[in-house]
Write a protein that binds this DNA or RNA. Structure first.
Length: 485
RNA sequence: GCCCCCAUCGUCUAGCGGCCUAGGACAUUGGCCUUUCACGUCAAAGACACGAGUUCAAAUCUCGUUGGGGGCGCCA
């Protein structure tokens, strides 16, 4: 069997959208699964909107996600160049071939003239499709002369055959396009650059792409592309049109739904594995219904047969859950590193403090890891161990615990024990608390709750003994002292 | 307006004619664990859009209706 070659072909006009990331991922997994090649191609034929910055952002987002490619602008390859803006000569030569073959022709109409035709057709209740007869009317010797004098180039039109086309889609089965659903269309624009539908086909043929996996917003375009493949007498690749990702309101996912770009999730402290894992499950499912799936296993099981054709709503709640799962699995060292920018930004600690007390912070992170779903939550969780606060003796809930039988005595006793606790280990603190309870016999829950409130100003939090350990002996003493004595 | 795609719990999905009294995950509710919270764990609640066919048998096949999405550019 021929080597599998797939491509991800984004246009560099903005950040990498999660939908694009999912398409890239599916291509990547498909390539890896079949031991094939992944190609990155930059579709920058829209000179107005394409920017170099976007291209760089795209590449860095993909890299962050861990999606890499065998051929592309950064790594080169035998089928380059991989930027469409650098392939304009190729498109022109190929268009000349089509003209030679009589399936393409030049157009000398002015935009206004085309608009008139367009409007007239609509008014007559006809579909706004151009035909060679309409376009060629303007191809007169005078017009050619005018164009030459003004330094204008004609556009090149494709003569769309009037016949049915059948798209055999790996995800959707057969899609039939009835004859006459589109008219002739532009291949090469007046600025000399190719149009999307034309450039993709030329590139996919030349780059020997075997499987085209892309968003289903391209389904209608496939009709035109099929006709171009036919005109070149080229074999069509297998197509797989993946459904769109929608916002919670069922509308196409956009900025107004909140975070939609890979960068945004990165900046909010998502782990790339979590995003990848969430995205792969949007449209694909593991044969054994696993949810947390390591990349190697995705590659092992990935296939188009298990891709769902219906569109999916992007559910941030589940993504958060998944991120939490990955945070819990991750090495604390890694979470520490990822936390640093967030800690700095929150001003909970300074850079010097972070560096000076790395070991302490690591212990704290170890403790709060189970309750965090985004790295951005770490500073506020950390602040329980650090923050100074005014203590409110009048707090009703606190009074309830504090005034319970034996609690005050127990705390006083604990204070004495802490005074003499030079070891200050989790074990020594545990022993001391246990002996307080044994000797003073306070109500356990009240005792613990009062103590937690005194030390952290909160009723809920991580394991109390470890929290005490991390707060430090001096501060623990001070806080008990100011309430109990 | 024309063309195309899609349709199972709130959400992501399993299901590819009988194994379905429709399974799993997130979210929700309750129990257990725990000093508390979280984690973990157990359980509950919750869906085949509608209507016709085909068939001994339909969530699964066909057609229609409705709803949603996409396309109809010298954007990609």
């Amino acid at each position: 069997m021929k080597e599998v070659r797939v491509r991800f072909a984004p246009s560099p006009t903005g950040f990498l959208h999660v939908g694009g990331a999912r398409t890239a991922l599916f291509n990547y997994l498909f390539a890896k699964h079949h031991n094939g090649k992944m190609i990155l191609r930059i579709e920058d034929t829209d000179a107005e909107r394409s920017t170099k910055e976007s291209e760089e952002q795209l590449i860095s987002a993909l890299t962050w996600l861990g999606i890499d490619w065998d051929e592309g602008p950064t790594v080169g390859g035998p089928y380059g160049p991989y930027r469409q803006s650098e392939r304009t000569d190729i498109y022109r030569h190929k268009a000349a071939e089509l003209m030679q073959a009589g399936v393409a022709y030049e157009g000398y109409a002015y935009p206004q003239e085309l608009e008139n035709i367009h409007d007239a057709l609509l008014e007559n209740g006809e579909p706004p499709h151009y035909t060679q007869e309409m376009i060629s009317k303007f191809d007169t010797p005078q017009r050619r002369k005018e164009f030459a004098e003004k330094g204008m180039s004609p556009v090149i039109y494709f003569k769309m055959p009037r016949k049915d086309y059948i798209l055999k889609d790996m995800i959707r089965g057969e899609v039939v396009f009835k004859e006459g659903s589109v008219g002739d269309f532009v291949l090469i624009r007046s600025n000399g650059l190719p149009t999307y539908n034309y450039a993709v086909v030329v590139d996919d043929i030349l780059m020997e792409i075997t499987h085209v996996i892309r968003g289903d917003d391209h389904i209608s375009n496939t009709l035109r592309q099929l006709a171009i493949y036919e005109a070149f007498d080229a074999q069509t690749p297998y197509f797989g049109h993946v459904s769109m990702i929608l916002g919670p309101d069922g509308k196409r996912l956009s900025k107004r739904h909140g975070a939609t770009s890979v960068e945004e999730f990165k900046d909010r402290g998502y782990l790339p594995e979590a995003l990848i894992n969430y995205l792969v499950l949007l449209g694909w499912s593991h044969p054994q219904a696993k949810e947390i799936i390591p990349l190697t296993e995705m590659i092992e099981h990935f296939g188009m047969e298990r891709v769902n054709p219906s569109s999916a709503i992007f559910d941030e709640v589940k993504l958060r859950w998944m991120n939490g799962m990955y945070i819990r699995q991750a090495q604390t060292e890694r979470i520490f590193k990822l936390s640093v920018p967030f800690i700095m930004e929150s001003k909970v600690l300074t850079m010097d403090q972070i560096q000076g007390s790395k070991k302490w912070i690591m212990q704290a992170i170890e403790l709060i890891k189970t309750s965090v779903e985004e790295i951005s939550q770490i500073p506020s969780e950390l602040s329980i161990f650090i923050n100074e606060f005014e203590f409110d003796l009048q707090n009703e809930e606190f009074k309830g615990y504090f005034e319970a039988e034996g609690v005050k005595d127990g705390l006083k006793h604990l204070y004495e024990l802490i005074n003499n606790d030079m070891l200050w280990t989790v074990e020594s603190i545990t022993d001391n608390i246990k002996s307080c309870i044994k000797i003073k016999k306070p109500d356990k829950k009240s005792f613990y709750m009062a103590l937690r409130k005194i030390l952290t100003n909160q009723f809920h939090g991580p394991d109390l003994v470890k929290t005490i350990h991390l707060i430090g002996r001096v501060r623990v003493q001070q806080r008990i002292e100011r309430v109990v004595f």
